[in-house]
Write a protein that binds this DNA or RNA. Structure first.
Lengths: 145, 145
DNA sequence: TTTTTGCTTTACGTTTACGTAAACTTCCTC
DNA sequence: GAGGAAGTTTACGTAAACGTAAAGCAAAAA
């Protein structure tokens, strides 16, 4: 069974970040570990937050952006209509941004595929120059076009 | 017909970046405009490079990363086998990274959808508290679950 | 001809996201 | 009870990606 509390190095180990980073995230109000004496104790929700922080980072979110989302989400439980509407617009914004990212990724993938193929072509040509024409079967090592 | 050369402000305008940024990219060896006297003249390939730089940025690539790819691509035309193999591995790396990003985006999209729905639920509850039960049709404004 | 407009270089400033070092406590082990 | 491992705070340092101001040239417009 997964534990319900974690030490700083538990989380650092699991997600491959430094303890320095985790303390920095706390400093930036992204995590709120409790304390036993001096030492930090992280809860399950803290762990989830950390995972979200890191995923956000991989997608180019700044810590400030992620914190803003966390805050909106937290405040939304106290639920004034204005808060909820604000949260909705932020959610829409992020969804649009993700759509854009999907486009970017799709285009880059196409370009990488094309680059890959040209690269393979060039390698095949080099091979034929070196070993003569009888080795044209090397083309079989290439992926489908 | 699209022109084959561009001024710095042409590109800044088209891609909505500052001229400062473009000069910085040149400084970092990502762009290589020629000069007429003092002023920079950008070619079609320069324009393409700029577009790739910005797309890379949106996906969280550093300028150094992007430059490395450019360099590998440029060197690959002079085509020693070692260069080509290096380029291939870099291409594979980027493709894997993009796959990871696709996963991240998919998961975040799911979470945003879920957040959106909980948000809409909360808004509906607020509305019913305020206006009585006869307005339950508001649920129709919600997207499909 | 002055003025505006656009471009240039040089250079210091700024924000983000940590790294790194110093100096200290706490707990565990031997 | 000496040492080591893991935790802590405080604080200065750093790399990336520009922003911003200063000071100047050069062509086009008024």
């Amino acid at each position: 069974m997964s534990p319900s509390t974690y030490s700083i190095s538990d989380l650092a180990g699991e997600f491959d970040v430094t303890t320095r980073s985790i303390r920095f995230y706390e400093d930036q109000k992204l995590l709120f570990p409790t304390r036993r004496g001096q030492t930090r104790i992280f809860s399950g929700p803290d762990r989830v937050r950390l995972k979200l922080i890191l995923r956000g980072k991989r997608l180019g979110f700044s810590l400030a952006e992620t914190r803003e989302l966390f805050e909106l989400w937290d405040e939304s439980t106290t639920g004034s209509m204005k808060q909820l509407e604000l949260l909705m617009t932020k959610i829409q914004e992020k969804k649009l941004a993700l759509e854009q990212q999907l486009n970017d990724i799709a285009m880059l993938q196409l370009e990488l595929d094309s680059a890959e193929n040209r690269c393979l072509d060039a390698m095949n040509e080099l091979n034929e120059e070196q070993t003569g024409l009888e080795q044209h079967d090397l083309a079989l090592t290439r992926n489908a076009r």
